[in-house]
């Protein structure tokens, strides 16, 4: 009974991790770019939400509707100005540029918002819960999981059913040939990163309302996102969702044994998967 509750909470937490990871997975799938600033961008979006919620008194969901296009524009611009210049055979430039960006965002936020922990207020929703059979679940964590499922379904529809998605897949498979067919890979990449930032905004909404965050919270989010992607297997968004859930369950089970082991047991689950199935549980991509 208690164990069941722990696992359900873990699955819900996994929804949040899948939201962290979906954007990373999307960008990697399309342009093989690993953005080391991904976690910091989530925290940046959370601070943008915080500003709107605390100064204008907006509902956080409404604020997310305003922040999402801003983040899309930021992602588009980052890709156009920075990341596109680093893409190539060498893995060093994109890694170092995004690592530099991560440091810039962290310290920019530290200057702007100080090192204090913050939280986005979601009103009565914060504490609302509902019975789900034998267990009781928080409404916000449940919505995070449902949002993660919706994001995965939405991105899959976009990738496999639309013209834009066809362009994504074509560019991913063969950039040069896609270029010959009239696709402009740089624009496609910029749109993909913009979309990833929209997902990042959704992740930030649930991160900010669920727990405290501060300007240095980014790297840990990046690591969870990365672990979810690797556990699930590269190139599969459903795999990423499963990876997030496995990570979440490993963390809550670890925490139920000893609260200090929460993060550690998540990492150990990741290492165990890496040991047994180095390419993840549901690999699709060849590289």
């Amino acid at each position: 009974m208690n164990m069941l509750d722990t696992i359900v909470q873990g699955v819900l937490l996994g929804g949040l991790y899948a939201l962290f990871a979906a954007g990373l997975s999307l960008v990697f799938g399309i342009m093989r770019l690993v953005n080391l600033a991904h976690g910091d961008l989530i925290v940046l979006a959370a601070f943008l939400l915080l500003v709107l919620v605390s100064t204008l008194g907006l509902n956080p969901f409404l604020a997310a509707l305003i922040v999402a296009p801003v983040m899309f524009a930021l992602g588009y611009a980052l890709q156009e100005v920075l990341f596109n210049r680093t893409l190539g055979k060498d893995v060093l430039p994109p890694l170092l540029v995004t690592f530099g960006l991560s440091i810039v965002i962290q310290n920019g936020l530290l200057e702007g918002f100080s090192a204090d922990s913050r939280r986005i207020s979601a009103g009565p929703l914060e504490t609302a819960s509902m019975g789900l059979g034998p267990v009781t679940v928080g409404l916000m964590p449940l919505m995070a999981l449902l949002s993660a499922v919706a994001v995965v379904v939405g991105l899959n529809l976009l990738i496999y059913r639309t013209a834009l998605g066809r362009a994504f897949r074509a560019t991913s498979d063969d950039t040069v040939t896609a270029g010959l067919m009239g696709i402009r890979p740089r624009k496609i990449f910029a749109v993909a990163t913009g979309l990833a930032m929209v997902v990042v905004t959704i992740a930030a909404l649930y991160l900010g309302t669920r727990a405290n965050f501060d300007p240095t919270a980014g790297p840990a989010r990046l690591i969870y996102a990365f672990e979810a992607v690797i556990i699930g297997g590269l190139g599969s968004l459903w795999g990423t969702l499963a990876g997030g859930v496995i990570l979440g369950v490993a963390q809550t089970v670890g925490a139920s044994i000893n609260p200090e082991w929460q993060i550690l047991s998540g990492h150990l689950a990741f290492l165990a998967v890496l040991l047994i199935k180095p390419r993840g549980l549901f690999p699709r991509a060849v590289d």
């Binding site: 680093t86 690592f99 440091i103 810039v104 962290q106 310290n107």
Partner: peptide, 21 residues
Amino acid sequence: YGSWYLLMLGLSGILVMLFAP
């Protein structure tokens, strides 16, 4: 200058990587 220093270090790193790899 505290965190401005790190911010500047990050920016210099990015600029060097882009323009003088």
